[in-house]
Design a protein around this nucleic acid. Structure first.
Lengths: 260, 260
DNA sequence: CGTATGATTGACATATTTCAAGGTCTGTGG
DNA sequence: CCACAGACCTTGAAATATGTCAATCATACG
């Protein structure tokens, strides 16, 4: 498929490049004007500050969101009021897909640092998906991917010991950051130890001890929030998984669209 | 919305009634002929026998499936070859949504008893969803629901002790069976203790002991595979959750469609 | 600079797993 | 129809990973 008005397309790509809609629409041979339509319904929200909520449980769902920069954590509350973190969302990842079903957010979403967000009104996105079959397909794929990573995560919680969980967590961050062009071996943890523990179903103390242990084993260097990975393969061994992109990675690894 | 040709519609309802496509299309005011189109693409497969595979990891994904009767378990294999069960699927529930993303099944699906299945070719379903916006919306909702129940399950694995997990599991079965018109208080476990333990991230022995304990506490009666629930409220207390429909229930509780 | 928050570390408690044995049901073939 | 094999389930005792409690330390922040 040839793209006429290549300059136009280029500038559009620019606008969506760091957004998950990038791989949502681009590999599909969607026409220019359709691409513009998509771009037009997206709103930039003013940046969230650390601890700001993007939405809270019970909020009416009108849009889904894409992280442009920063990090967002999503969490539910257990019936006794405890927080259970369901995910950390990096630039290019989508948020709020769990709310489509009821039209109400079952989770809260909260910024872990200064974060900028794209808002995508869901009703308009649905309208567009009817007109752009490739877009519909991509949305199905993205939601499917989320289900898949959730299943993978269940396996982590159900079968793996604490060290494997933390290793897998670090590798997940490493991969997802790597895909976005950041370093795979040195990055900041934008979430607290508490958040990590909560997410992985462990006690904070366990996480802390594991960091110490991983460091003693020469796998990583821990300097407060800054993690340096010395031994990726070693981490994979601890995690007990093959070095595949995994765990909540909403990105589409292969450039070509397989089904269709 | 009034339904002309009510007889026609009635017979179609009949055909799809026990299928999850029932609540996928019916509450939407989809016209008769569109309903027929949907019905036409669905294939009945010959029944699966116990232990038959519907698909295996790595199989090319061409369709999604709905359970008509029986039970199907889905599971992944860990890198060291262990089975991790990701779900049990009762009549009216959909299967294979996790495979859309890659066009390949990441899981296996296997019948736990004689099971009949509807096959829905996914490419044709996608085509239809473009022509029937209400269908597209329902598909989004169904996938969203799955993400939501997955999140809920993560909370179970991450935060809850063994007794709460098993109680929640029994309540989930109870609710899902209840919605489908079966008894909420007496049912057969079509899966082995091993499967239950695997799914809940526990050892078989723990599950066995819990059944004994629940029975001693007067919560349930266990006769081999047959469970009789004596004290639903008590189970909810142990599970530490409100009596809401939960846990892998793909059904749409409220008759009205909230968003749109 | 002092206070609050988060992180680390140690000692102890415990839920759950592991190991081991025995029991029960089911289906099969003689 | 019975006996047997194998799968499945249950139960006990011991081992252990992880959680809990508590104290200290480091860092960030006002």
């Amino acid at each position: 498929m040839s793209a006429p008005k290549i300059l136009d397309l280029g500038s559009l790509k620019q606008a969506c490049k760091s957004c998950s809609l990038h791989d949502l629409c681009l590999p599909l041979g969607v026409g220019d004007e359709e691409l513009q339509m998509l771009e037009r319904i997206i709103n930039r929200k003013r940046p969230l500050q650390r601890k700001d909520h993007l939405y809270r449980p019970g909020d009416r769902m009108t849009s889904i969101y894409a992280v442009r920069s920063g990090t967002v954590k999503t969490y539910t509350l257990t019936d006794d009021g405890q927080e259970q973190i369901t995910g950390f969302h990096l630039p290019g990842e989508l948020l709020g897909l769990d709310a489509i079903s009821d039209g109400v957010h079952p989770c809260a979403a909260r910024a872990l640092e200064t974060t900028s967000i794209c808002e995508i009104p869901f009703d308009r996105l649905e309208e567009l998906s009817v007109r752009i079959p490739g877009l519909q397909h991509q949305l199905f794929r993205i939601m499917s991917r989320e289900i898949q990573t959730d299943e993978h995560f269940m396996m982590l919680l159900g079968k793996k010991a604490s060290d494997a969980r933390l290793a897998a967590f670090l590798l997940s961050l490493s991969n997802r950051l790597g895909i976005r062009g950041f370093s795979r071996t040195e990055f900041n943890l934008t979430m607290s130890r508490n958040d990590i523990a909560n997410y992985l179903g462990l006690a904070v103390e366990t996480v802390s001890r594991l960091f110490t242990r991983f460091q003693a084993a020469g796998l990583i260097l821990v300097r407060r929030k800054l993690i340096t990975i010395y031994d990726l393969d070693g981490l994979y061994t601890v995690a007990g998984t093959q070095p595949v992109e995994d765990l909540r990675n909403h990105h589409n690894g292969n450039g070509k669209s397989p089904p269709m």
